[in-house]
């Protein structure tokens, strides 16, 4: 299924990762191993450090200590663009697109990077057939065909979320990190988003932050519970929802509903 070649079999492996912002310790020794090809959710209360975890993995912040390995190779200390080129792409909790570029262009930027024409100065981009075709294919995949020429900033919220997912696909990474892709969506939009995520991460490794347990149940193979900088448990969604400790620490009534 997956085309990953790693000695460990893990797409992503975090070992004793800590992170402090000044005095405040936000990550307190996280150990996490994401298998190649699995879909893995991170859940946890607000402020637990889920987004910080993503920021550490994607190179946005340096870790205070510990190691992060992508496909068996340490990526600690690498800048975000090199981590991306090593095969990891992420989306953001707060929509992070190019608001004044067209939707198509938002996607093409990443496709250009994937094909190593980042600094292309000697050919008009409109003549690059393969790149335009590929961007168009992703456009279709995320269902934004009709919006191709519109400015990304003019899209509706859920369309922007779809674009955000599309952008994470453009660089061809096989490890995809999605930070609350369905947050703020209606039930219907959420169902669509789940189908979208399922199809686009086929054959890839997915790590996602998700609050909605029904999404986790329908999409993910395993779940990790992050509570104030510690991983409380990692297991199947079913086992996690039945875990007494997790229920006490976080899920509470949510599992009942």
């Amino acid at each position: 299924m997956s085309t990953l070649h790693s000695q460990t079999g893990f797409a992503l492996q975090l070992t004793d990762v800590t992170k402090s912002f000044g005095e405040i310790s936000v990550m307190k020794g996280v150990n996490l191993a994401i298998k190649a090809g699995e879909r893995h959710a991170v859940i946890g209360p607000n402020g637990a450090g889920k987004s910080t975890l993503f920021n550490l993995i994607s190179g946005m912040f340096p870790v205070t200590s510990g190691d992060i390995a992508l496909n068996g190779r340490s990526i600690v200390g690498l800048p975000p663009y090199q981590i991306n080129r090593s095969g990891l792409a992420r989306s953001f909790q707060i929509t992070n697109i190019f608001p004044r570029l067209s939707v198509f262009e938002n996607l093409r930027i990443g496709v250009l990077a994937r094909h190593n024409v980042r600094f292309g100065l000697f050919q008009p981009v409109s003549r690059m057939r393969r790149i335009n075709d590929e961007a168009r294919a992703i456009l279709a995949e995320v269902g934004l065909d009709a919006r191709a020429a519109d400015m990304a900033g003019d899209l509706t919220y859920s369309e922007q979320r779809a674009l955000e997912i599309g952008m994470t696909l453009t660089t061809g990474a096989d490890v995809i990190l999605l930070d609350e892709p369905t947050a703020g969506m209606s039930r219907e939009e959420t169902a669509q988003a789940v189908e979208l995520i399922r199809s686009v991460t086929e054959g890839k490794t997915l790590l996602m932050v998700e609050h909605d347990m029904s999404v986790v149940f329908s999409l993910c193979d395993r779940v990790s519970v992050l509570v104030y900088g510690n991983i409380l448990a990692t297991d199947t969604p079913k086992a996690i929802s039945e875990n007494r400790e997790v229920q006490e620490a976080y899920l509470g009534e949510e599992t009942a509903s």
Binding site: N96, R100, E105, I109, M128
Partner: peptide, 14 residues
Amino acid sequence: RTPFGRLTLAIRDN
């Protein structure tokens, strides 16, 4: 019109 020209706008935006 070049890829780098489009990247220039993307950098301005985000």
